[in-house]
Design a protein around this nucleic acid. Sequence first.
RNA 1: GGCGCGUUAUCCAAGAGGCUAGGAGCCGGUCUGCAAAACCGUUAACGUCGGUUCGAAUCCGACACGCGCCUCCA
Length: 488
Amino acid sequence: MALRVYNTLTGEKELFVPLVPGKVGMYVCGVTVYDYCHIGHARAGVVFDVIFRYLKYAGYEVTYVRNYTDIDDKIINRANQEGSDYRTVADRYIGAFDEDMARLGLQKPTVEPKATDHMDGIITIIEALITRGHAYMSGGDVYYAVESFPDYLKLSGRTLEDMLAGARVETGDKKRHPMDFALWKGSKPGEPWWHSPWGNGRPGWHIECSAMSMEFLGKTFDIHGGGKDLVFPHHENEIAQSEGANGCQFVRYWLHNGFVNINSEKMSKSLGNFFTIREVLKSYDPETLRFFILSAHYRSPLDFSDQNLDEAQAGLERLYSCLAALDRVPVGDNGPDAALTPVGEELREKVTQFRSRFIEAMDDDFNAAQALGPLFDMVRGTNRFLAESGEQAGASRQLLGQLRALLMEAGGVLGLFTVPPEQWLAGIKAAGVGRLSLTVEQIEQLIAERREARQTKNFTRGDEIRDQLLAAGVQLLDSAQGTTWNVK
RNA sequence: GGCGCGUUAUCCAAGAGGCUAGGAGCCGGUCUGCAAAACCGUUAACGUCGGUUCGAAUCCGACACGCGCCUCCA
């Protein structure tokens, strides 16, 4: 099997063949830095992080570029609101973005360029567009003439007529066609500006991505990604700019992730129904959020809710618990594994098939949700084997070691299992304690009281304490070694 | 209005002509003073109506419902 990816441009899954064998150039639209990131940004970040990781896992040398758009109307507005300047706002939210993405465990892209560091490239492309008749000056601005580019809207599969029908497009007096868009905006008083052949001003939205991708990946490159909402106008306009200026294909494979929904409705700034990443990470572990994102295919909508996050946590906990159980297996001798029981043979079979099943899923348009299946399968087999062999499990350490390595290998691609299992499990518990009305001391005290009651066979009192704690959200776990507890 | 997408069991969610997805839950079992937890086992589905086919969640058509884009958005 070979990697196949869904290309928005053709609307089909295609065999992935990079421009240069063994190498991949990938550009993903980052963020416009004017506010904290929400869960939608988290999804895009995680999805393309996994794509980046998988391409490397598949043996490609990947150049991954993810930009910061650090000059834009919204940044300027924000700066005006708070009485600072665009640079202050941009730098603050670049810092916040980096923090959020690091917490979600994203690997650093190869390059993370900023729009304002690429003014020369931006100006060069606009000049080329004017020369080739794709752009025109008007009232201090420069606009792209969409009618000059026959392929315009090929990505979203529409026509200019479709777009205008019933649409609320204002016919700005500066534009020749209502769909024309700004490449360069003349600066108004008090606004940041850069020198250009068309006077002082700043770039329009879209052009920075054409400039930065060309700078680091060339005129034609393999993968361009972003959220579905960028298909139009952002990516459509990038195509018009880059292909208009260079006269050659811009991007070979367009990848777009689906939205995060709240109650089946798109999460967005304008609807005001969004959660920031940092808000969510107050109640949920970052890897849980990551796991939740990976539990649906990247192009499908993903419904965000506490219930779904809780389920994701339960799933991830199952995986981590298995890893922790493997760590507790007593070390056997270094000799060959003991003869396996039927249950052991079954597990060996799962171990043998694991990698090909995992790769098959990921090769099919990065289907991480499907790739999770073999992980859980192997976990079930492991639990079963461990339960059966008990103290003797150490005699099969080669098999178990191989199994653990495979789990970690898959975790490396998905960005999971980055925390030592016992520590992760302890972290989940600690987070739960923070939400309780009882202190750890009070809980321990009650448990001690219960132990005494039970020792004197006063089960009524013992059960009373157990119910009391349960009502407070504390779940007791009795075992031969004594009583421990968990937050429910 | 134009264009596009989706509808899978109690819930979440893969699958895209014949091949066990998976998770949570329910139920049964092991364990336990009884429970809980953990572990094991197990259950069930393809929106509706037609069509193509030896065979359809899967392909085609109609309908219903939901959603998205057409305006800043990951």
